[in-house]
C-alpha cells in the first residue's frame, strides 16, 4: 500500500517546508508552556497536548507522512501515550490507596499537593493527547492491514 500512497499524495513545497522549519520550535515550546499550566492559571494538558501533537502533523504535511514516520521513532510515541495514561491513573488511584477518593490530590503528603498533582496530571494528559493524535494519524493513515502484514507497530 505504501507504493500506492506515495505518488500524487505528497508535493514538496519550499514555502511550506521553510515555514514549518521556522515555526516548529515555537509551537512546541508554546505547547509545553500551556501544558505546565492548568492548576491556577489558564492552560492544561488537552490544549497543550493538541498543540504539541500538531507539530508532528505539520512536519508530516511538510516532509511527507512516510518520511516523518521513519524519522519519528514510533516506540517513543507509544511510550509517551502509555506513560501519560499511567501517570494520570497512577495519581488517581494513588489517592484511593491513601484513603481518599479518585484524584483527591490533598491526600498526598506534600506541599501544594493539589497544584502539583493537577499539573502532573495535565502533563500526563498532554502526553496522551499529543501522542494519541500523532498515533491515530499514522495508524489510520496506514490502516491496520499495514500493521498486521508488516508487523509495523505504531
Amino acid at each position: 500500500m505504501s507504493d500506492a500512497e506515495q505518488p500524487g499524495l505528497y508535493v514538496e513545497s519550499t514555502v511550506i517546508m521553510t515555514t514549518v522549519r521556522v515555526v516548529t520550535p515555537f509551537i512546541l515550546t508554546f505547547g509545553l508552556f500551556i501544558m505546565f499550566h492548568g492548576a491556577d492559571s489558564p492552560g492544561g494538558g488537552f490544549q497543550g497536548g493538541v498543540i504539541a501533537g500538531s507539530v508532528v502533523m505539520m512536519l508530516a504535511f511538510a516532509y511527507g507522512i512516510e518520511a516523518t514516520r521513519d524519522w519519528l521513532d514510533s516506540r517513543l510515541v507509544v511510550a509517551i501515550a502509555s506513560l501519560g495514561v499511567l501517570t494520570f491513573a497512577g495519581i488517581g488511584l494513588g489517592s484511593i490507596l491513601l484513603g481518599g477518593t479518585f484524584l483527591e490530590y490533598h491526600r498526598y503528603p506534600i506541599e501544594k499537593a493539589s497544584k502539583y498533582g493537577i499539573e502532573l496530571v495535565e502533563l500526563g494528559i498532554g502526553g496522551i493527547v499529543a501522542s494519541v493524535i500523532i498515533g491515530l494519524f499514522f495508524v489510520i493513515a496506514a490502516g491496520f492491514g499495514h500493521a498486521i502484514d508488516g508487523g509495523d507497530e505504531s
Binding site: V78, A79, A81, L86, E153
Partner: peptide, 16 residues
C-alpha cells in the same frame, strides 16, 4: 472506567 483505560495503555507499552 479507570481499569480499561489503564488496561488499554499497557498493550501499547508492552508492545514495545
Amino acid at each position: 472506567i479507570a481499569l480499561p483505560i489503564v488496561g488499554g495503555a499497557l498493550p501499547l507499552l508492552f508492545g514495545l
